[in-house]
């Protein structure tokens, strides 16, 4: 393999990994901090892509589309949390059934509004085109994904580790009643976390949209990827999700380059290998007594 190819593959790995992080961060938050299994997570991603498509058609602005779609999706998720999820905290099987049902509803809504023809999300004008890095041609947009991914990872890390909100949330996960006893409205925080998770999924959708495109079935593909990242990284740790994403990014990119015939399995081989060596994921702690 030549040097330029290696440069491209490394950049590919990082940009794909960070795209995966954008997908998985929200799921990791919802699952890790709230203990809620949300199988409608991929639908938030898909809704993000389609809603931004609608906004771009109306306004032509990628930034407006990003904010509009993410806000709309988080509002939807808040309603979902307050009216449904809230009633079944700690009942994981019910959560699986309920959110799975929502995934179907969202898919039908998308089919109904946008039809079944695959669509694509245009890139922002200033990020179109490619640049040459040491003789290797690389799309500008993917460099932007790398940049935004790192930025978002930092912001999230700061929120969870360095703010009062983060402390309250983490305390709430460990002992909900004690936190309520201290006069803190933990339910409100949980709703906010759920909405933040949906917000991140939609942001991932809009940023990933120009690469993935918009089509029915995107939701389940994304859900599987996001679950794999969260499992590899370890449940409920953002750092784990970050490591897991970048690891999968590298494994899949280089796996596809060296062993294209096994492309369908690279992710799962990685997952099995990690789980055999570290059953709780890369950074997961054993929380069960």
């Amino acid at each position: 393999m030549e040097v330029t190819q290696i440069i491209i593959q490394v950049l590919n790995s990082i940009s794909y990994g960070l795209l995966l992080f954008l997908l998985a961060a929200g799921l990791s938050l919802i699952f890790g901090l709230m203990g809620v299994i949300n199988l409608a997570y991929g639908s938030f991603f898909m809704l993000g892509v389609y809603l931004s498509l609608a906004v771009i058609e109306q306004t032509g602005s990628f930034i407006l589309a990003l904010l509009g779609a993410a806000t709309a999706v988080s509002l939807v998720s808040m309603v979902m949390e307050v009216c449904f999820i809230r009633k079944i905290y700690n009942r994981e099987l019910d959560q699986v059934l309920l959110t799975f049902g929502f995934a179907y509803i969202f898919m039908d809504i998308v089919r109904w509004c946008w039809g079944g023809t695959p669509q694509s999300l245009p890139k922002p004008v200033m990020l179109q085109g490619s640049i040459s890095i040491l003789g290797a041609i690389f799309p500008v947009y993917r460099l932007a994904v790398i940049f935004v991914g790192i930025l978002l990872a930092l912001v999230l890390w700061l929120i969870v580790e360095k703010t009062r909100m983060g402390v309250i949330i983490k305390a709430g996960v460990d002992d909900k009643e004690m936190v309520s006893g201290l006069g803190i409205n933990i339910r409100l925080y949980f709703t906010l976390i759920f909405a933040l998770g949906a917000f991140l999924a939609a942001v991932g959708g809009v940023l990933g949209g120009p690469i993935t495109g918009a089509y029915l079935g995107l939701d389940s593909e994304i859900l599987v990827l996001a679950l794999a990242v969260v499992v590899i990284g370890g449940l409920g740790t953002l750092k784990g999700a970050f490591l897991g994403s970048v690891l999968i990014g590298f494994m899949e990119t280089f796996g596809n380059a060296f062993f294209p015939n096994y492309a369908m399995m690279t992710i799962y081989i990685t997952m099995v290998a990690v789980l055999v060596l570290k059953p709780n994921g890369l950074l997961g702690k054993d929380e069960r007594p």
Binding site: N12, E221, T253, P260
Partner: peptide
Amino acid sequence: EIYPKLGTTDYGPYLAQ
């Protein structure tokens, strides 16, 4: 001959080769 899996999201790794 390069055969990516059906439904590949990211052709980058294949195109680079």
